[in-house]
Amino acid sequence: MGFGHLLNEMTAKPGEFAVSWIVLGSLVIMSIGSWYYTVVNWLKNSVIRARAEKVIRTFWDTPNPADAIRAMEEQPKNEPFSKVALDAAQAALHHQRNEGSRLVESLNRSEFIDRALRQAVTRESAKLESGMTWLATTGATAPFIGLLGTVWGIYGALIRIGATGQASIDAVAGPVGEALIMTALGLFVAIPAVVAFNWFVRMNRDTNAKFDSFAHDLHDFFATGSRVSDATGKR
């Protein structure tokens, strides 16, 4: 008696076990999605974190701003820090080219660059959130979906026991035990999703902090022509 036996019964009586099939299918889909986003986000975050310091250092260590921007353009399309730097550079250039226009009158150079940087950081931060909703939803709902399967399975088992008139412990233990497997499956799906979600939240928080720090230095550089931190000698 076990999960294999439960599957055999569900296959033999698909109509009677329709709810159980729906629950099982939902848990399988949620588990596949959770593991997919876990692997994809782990690879994505690992690559971003591994390249972050190198990209930032490349930008600041390049003496010529034009060469620094060219180095950012050569970065992979999915590298976020270079995209933030390019947006800041494009905003500064666009503002410079429109001197004397209503754009310059309504927003000074600092405000225009700041707005571009905020949009860039928000965009790149949103990309880090891919799959997080799925992981959170799976972690929160999978145990209850499994519990629904258990309740329905126990209900069906009790109906069958009542119909046969056998109420011994041997007759009750098997069907009820099989129904409880659904709860175990729900936990098996939910726990990895919760662990992955909390892990990625921490990783994203660290990456977002680096976004903010880099954007702050970029704002100083493109708004004033030099990093404020350079002038103070703190970095």
Rank of each mutant, 00 (worst) to 15 (best):
G149N: 01
G149M: 02
G146D: 08
A157Y: 01
L128I: 06
G149E: 03
G146N: 07
A136L: 07
A126F: 12
I154Y: 04
I154E: 04
T138D: 10
T150L: 04
L128W: 01
A136K: 01
T138C: 12
F144Y: 11
A126D: 14
A126E: 15
S125T: 10
W134N: 14
A140H: 10
I154S: 06
S125W: 02
L147N: 11
K127A: 14
I154H: 04
T141L: 04
I154D: 05
K127Q: 15
A142L: 06
G149W: 00
T141V: 11
A142E: 06
W152S: 05
L148G: 05
G131R: 00
L135E: 06
S130F: 13
T150C: 04
L128T: 04
A140T: 11
E129F: 03
A126R: 12
A136G: 12
T138F: 08
V151E: 08
P143Y: 02
F144A: 07
L147T: 13
I145C: 02
K127C: 14
G156I: 13
T133K: 09
K127R: 14
W152D: 10
Y155A: 15
Y155M: 15
T133M: 13
T133C: 07
A157H: 06
L128S: 00
E129R: 04
A142P: 06
A140C: 09
S125M: 03
A126N: 14
L128R: 00
A142Y: 03
S125D: 12
G131A: 07
G146I: 07
G131S: 09
T133Y: 11
G153V: 02
L135P: 03
T138W: 06
